[in-house]
Amino acid sequence: TTVHIGNVTYHFDNPEEAVKWAKEMAEKLGLRIEIHGDTIRVE
């Protein structure tokens, strides 16, 4: 599972961890997340 924040990509072996981490980052940055299969974007 990959999480994209701007130009930076993070890789997670556990999809649930990826979603949890992306949600925390989105809250901190005042952004929202979009999930497309195994790709998560924070925008």
Rank of each mutant, 00 (worst) to 15 (best):
T1N: 04
T1M: 15
T1G: 05
T1Y: 13
T2K: 13
T2D: 06
T2A: 07
V3S: 00
V3Y: 01
V3D: 00
V3E: 00
V3K: 00
H4I: 15
H4Q: 13
H4S: 08
H4K: 11
H4L: 14
I5K: 02
I5M: 08
I5H: 04
I5Q: 02
I5A: 03
G6T: 04
G6Y: 10
G6H: 11
G6V: 06
N7C: 15
N7F: 10
N7D: 11
V8G: 07
V8K: 15
V8R: 15
V8T: 12
V8Q: 14
T9Q: 12
T9K: 13
T9M: 12
T9C: 11
Y10F: 12
Y10A: 03
Y10W: 07
Y10S: 02
Y10G: 01
H11F: 14
H11V: 09
H11G: 04
H11P: 03
F12A: 01
F12Q: 00
F12T: 00
F12S: 00
F12D: 00
F12E: 00
D13W: 09
D13Q: 11
D13L: 11
D13H: 09
N14S: 12
N14L: 07
P15V: 13
P15M: 15
P15K: 15
P15T: 12
P15N: 12
P15I: 13
E16Q: 11
E16G: 07
E16H: 10
E16S: 10
E16Y: 12
E16T: 10
E16K: 10
E16I: 12
E16V: 11
E17G: 04
E17S: 08
A18F: 03
A18W: 02
A18Q: 00
A18N: 00
V19D: 03
V19K: 08
V19I: 15
K20V: 08
K20T: 09
K20L: 11
W21T: 01
W21P: 00
W21K: 02
W21N: 00
W21Q: 01
W21R: 01
A22V: 03
A22K: 00
A22F: 02
A22D: 00
A22H: 00
A22T: 02
K23S: 11
K23D: 04
K23H: 09
K23I: 12
K23T: 14
K23Y: 12
K23Q: 13
E24V: 11
E24G: 08
E24P: 01
E24F: 15
M25A: 05
M25C: 06
M25V: 12
A26W: 03
A26V: 03
A26N: 02
A26P: 00
A26Y: 03
A26L: 03
A26Q: 03
A26I: 02
E27S: 07
E27C: 09
E27K: 09
E27T: 07
E27N: 09
E27F: 10
E27P: 02
E27A: 09
K28V: 08
K28A: 13
K28N: 08
L29M: 10
L29H: 14
L29C: 06
L29D: 05
L29T: 05
G30P: 02
G30V: 03
L31H: 09
L31M: 15
L31F: 14
R32P: 09
R32T: 15
R32D: 12
R32G: 13
I33M: 12
I33T: 03
I33G: 02
I33H: 03
I33V: 14
E34Y: 15
E34M: 08
E34W: 10
E34L: 07
I35H: 06
I35P: 03
I35R: 04
I35W: 09
H36W: 11
H36C: 08
H36Q: 13
H36M: 13
G37Y: 04
G37D: 05
G37W: 03
G37K: 05
G37T: 04
D38N: 15
D38F: 05
D38S: 14
D38L: 07
T39F: 07
T39S: 10
T39N: 07
T39H: 12
T39W: 06
T39Q: 11
T39G: 05
I40D: 01
I40W: 01
I40F: 01
I40G: 01
I40Q: 01
I40L: 03
R41Y: 15
R41K: 10
R41I: 14
R41L: 13
R41F: 15
R41E: 05
R41T: 13
V42S: 02
V42D: 01
V42K: 01
V42Y: 02
E43T: 15
E43G: 15
E43D: 11
E43F: 15
